[in-house]
Write a protein that binds this DNA or RNA. Sequence first.
DNA 1: CCTTGACTCTCCCCCAGGGGGAGACCGCCA
DNA 2: TGGCGGTCTCCCCCTGGGGGAGAGTCAAGG
Lengths: 274, 274
Amino acid sequence: MSGLLYAIGEVSRITGLSVKALRLYQEKGLLLPSRVDPSSGYRYYTERDIAQAHTLRALRDLRLSLEEIRGVLEELDQGASLSEHLTKVRARLADEAASAQRSVLALDTLLRHQEQAEAYLRAPPPLLERWLPGMRVAVHRARGRYSDASQVFPRLLAACGPKVGGAPFCLYHEAEYREDDADISWCVPLPPGARPEGVQVEELPEVQAATLVHTGPPDSVGPSWARLFAHLHAHERIPAVPLRETFLRVGANEAVSSSWRTELALSWEAKHGG
Amino acid sequence: MSGLLYAIGEVSRITGLSVKALRLYQEKGLLLPSRVDPSSGYRYYTERDIAQAHTLRALRDLRLSLEEIRGVLEELDQGASLSEHLTKVRARLADEAASAQRSVLALDTLLRHQEQAEAYLRAPPPLLERWLPGMRVAVHRARGRYSDASQVFPRLLAACGPKVGGAPFCLYHEAEYREDDADISWCVPLPPGARPEGVQVEELPEVQAATLVHTGPPDSVGPSWARLFAHLHAHERIPAVPLRETFLRVGANEAVSSSWRTELALSWEAKHGG
DNA sequence: CCTTGACTCTCCCCCAGGGGGAGACCGCCA
DNA sequence: TGGCGGTCTCCCCCTGGGGGAGAGTCAAGG
């Protein structure tokens, strides 16, 4: 029979959902008490309702919004495949997690470089959207870490001869931050007609990107990257690889932070069928 | 002189902050326009105001709340050390990131084990807070991965002889999830008086923990762990290591998911001076 | 039967961080 | 002088509830 009825306070104690939350879920149609006394308005819940409440709680603990929970509950009721809604939720949460993680890394940078941080916060560099022109580059692609630049660029520059077509840059082919083992292309733009030997040459297409010029040593770019990602996010654009760091001015010394100048460029995915 | 004044729409275009947001920041005292026309109410901003707006924007992009931004701005104005506020913000964001990351891992589990997922969502296991009793255990601690259990436990059990004091369990000494290279203790409870040879013996203290019994193969525990973390978070408790997985029933086959039963236990830090 | 204390009801205001829109001014150019 | 775009204030909306006021209810004990 299981005709047992539970008052709202008991359900709250059993499920760990607050009384306020239970009333809200009723109002939203997510969890209807099986019986509501017409004269007193008291809510009474059955065992089945409590099971539903537990489900709801499990989903809420996974940080689903009430709307998302509604979708999953309906799919559960109809025995449809869960994957449709859950895949979207996963994407949203992965986005959230990545964003928070980037902010943490950026804050670590700010905390490590105190004076740098004050300068950055007092006058954060302007953010511009522009087209990065297509160009021909000498390129060396490998897995490694940023600091390999000091070995790679001299080799590339030597192969290119005395004239180059612009500031050297790196392309990062994965969006996640990784200390080492990143998939990097080191690139040197070539002047028209140049035919360097012993290096690979590639033609890069033009691409639209959000860009800013960061001032400071190489390991202080975190907050600037976070800004670029936040900018795209605010405009509902999906960041695309590769990320580009162009070394406009390279300092001899990490201590003289203003002697470093790096342009960061983040492009985004073209709209599908747009 | 830079006596140039900018109307709110221009500032919005320059900084990327919406007009609504700019008015809100004024109301909250975060960004006051240098001049407000007394008769028309029009807001006019100077270059300095715009610099401040850029700072504000950079901080907002780092996911700081307006209250946190207020704190940082005041410290910037007074030239005090930034680290005080920023350290707190970092902690908050790291917490957020970890929570979202756990949810993503849990959702991945649910998507991988479809039927498992439905069973879990239809009847999520009850969550209990209880005291894990202190006990004497035979223990082998090493870096490795969960699946090493099939090698380690037979060795431990052989050393303990025919009688053991309870179900074997693992202790994870780091809170972050890692596929391999986790710091794990494999433990077998000992009956009173037992003196096994060739293995290390330890005395575990009793500890209070949030626990639940998960049904399903070992790689499906993600959502259950996420629930435990969310439970502690809701009660403003800080999770503590080690995490414990007690193997109540071990299935021969991953396919028969209901043949696996694992109790997860998450303890928390004692209140300081509480 | 009455009281008492613990529950529960509805209703309203509050939080962050703004978005959307109505209706009324304002500024500047032709 | 008209028009058009920018701006003003004011109000309601979103999420996921929390806090509390004032009134009604339930069950047990005297």
